[in-house]
Computed example of a mutant assay.
Amino acid sequence: MNKTTIKTLIGLHGMLVVYSMSGICSKLAAGESFLNARFCIYYAVIIVLLGVYAIGWQQVIKRIPLTTAFANKAVTVVWGIVWGWFFFGESITPGKLIGAGMVIAGVVLFAKSDEV
């Protein structure tokens, strides 16, 4: 794997963090009354985050195969667990850890099969 590919993958994962943050705002907005100020602010932030993600995603898929980029998107499951714990006090159960481990193993397995 060359230096450019590594930089692209790091950028991809940065974009996936941005994408996963839209879920935080979605959950916060769900707790608000429809169309009150906070609800509108959360949804405005969602639109901005998804816009940034969309632009970044287009840049990433110019540089690496779509199948590789899309396989890495599964890592947002891990970010969902982290954000749930950090922002909402959700518990991290053994089942969640096993599931996240399986997702990461799948991404690594797919990446290794791409090298062959």
Results as ranks from 00 to 15, higher is better:
K112P: 00
I46Q: 15
N36W: 05
L28P: 08
T4V: 14
A74S: 14
S26H: 06
E115V: 12
S33N: 09
I64T: 12
F88P: 02
G99R: 01
L16H: 01
T5A: 07
I61P: 14
K3H: 02
A111P: 05
L109N: 14
N2F: 02
A69G: 09
R63P: 00
V48H: 07
M102K: 05
T68R: 14
L35E: 06
Y42N: 10
N72W: 01
M15K: 03
V17Y: 15
V52L: 10
F70N: 08
A105R: 01
S33D: 06
L9C: 14
K73H: 07
K62G: 04
A71S: 15
I55S: 07
G84R: 05
I24F: 03
K7E: 14
G14V: 13
T67F: 10
E115T: 15
Y42E: 07
Y53M: 03
I46L: 02
F110V: 01
R63A: 15
L97P: 02
C25R: 01
R38V: 06
S20A: 14
C40L: 15
N36A: 01
S33H: 02
V75K: 00
T67K: 10
F86N: 00
I92L: 12
G106S: 08
R38S: 13
K73W: 01
V52D: 04
H13K: 10
A111I: 06
V78F: 06
G11Q: 13
A71E: 00
G95E: 06
L9W: 12
L66M: 14
G89Y: 11
I47Q: 11
I104L: 15
V78H: 03
A105L: 12
V18I: 15
I64S: 09
A105E: 07
V103L: 00
Y19C: 08
S20R: 01
G95S: 13
V78R: 05
L50R: 05
E115G: 04
Y43K: 03
V17A: 14
V78T: 03
A29K: 10
V52R: 06
T67H: 13
